[in-house]
């Protein structure tokens, strides 16, 4: 009984056939789930990255500013528009309350994003693709992206970062 102590010899009671069947099935599924994650790291194309570097807001800001100057092609609503070459290091800055720069990329090409924050935690939420990553101050998160669709994409901040949190929205443009 749940409230009363178990019956004598409870440890030796045979497990019923249906319960045994279910537990076996559940165990197999659980093992498959574990190995699936490992296998996806080898054959799958979407994986959280292996690479993080330590940095500081000052250092990251300096690197990002230099990057933006190098590849800047214009401005949009006061935010630099930057078109980096494929296979290069791209710097994306999160700060209260905007994303810098606006990036112009090419579909089917790889870009090594370095994402970091100058102040609080922020959330990188790429819409409408719906890919979500965290952005930290003091940590450079290196995510190598390959856009597989073209068009205009929004970067929504989805980690609470103060009263202006909902105004924090960036842009990525992917050309064919």
């Amino acid at each position: 009984m749940a409230l009363l102590p178990p019956e004598e010899g409870w440890y030796f009671k045979k497990v019923a056939k249906d319960e045994k069947m279910w537990i076996t099935l559940a165990l197999v599924v659980c093992l498959i789930l574990f190995f699936w994650m490992v296998v996806w790291h080898i054959y799958g194309k979407q994986n959280p990255s292996f690479t993080t570097y330590r940095t500081t807001p000052q250092e990251f800001n300096a690197l990002a500013t230099a990057f933006m100057e190098k590849y800047k092609t214009g401005e949009m609503n006061g935010i630099p528009v930057v078109e980096p070459p494929p296979n290069s290091d791209v710097f994306l800055v999160a700060k209260m309350w905007r994303w810098e720069p606006v990036l112009v990329l090419k579909k089917g090409q790889e870009y090594r994003f370095h994402i970091s924050s100058l102040d609080l935690l922020h959330g990188f939420s790429l819409q409408p693709v719906n890919m979500n990553f965290m952005v930290y101050p003091g940590y450079d998160y290196v995510l190598t992206f390959k856009p597989t669709s073209a068009g205009e994409f929004a970067i929504v901040c989805n980690e609470f970062c103060g009263i202006g949190h909902h105004m924090m929205i960036g842009k990525i443009i992917v050309k064919e």
Partner: peptide, 24 residues
């Protein structure tokens, strides 16, 4: 959430932001 709507977020019309985005 599957459509991308964020949690802990006050305004998904992003009023005051430099750009806007409309969810499905």
């Amino acid at each position: 959430g599957a459509f991308g709507v964020p949690r802990r977020h006050y305004d998904i019309t992003f009023s005051g932001g430099p750009f806007t985005y409309t969810f499905n």
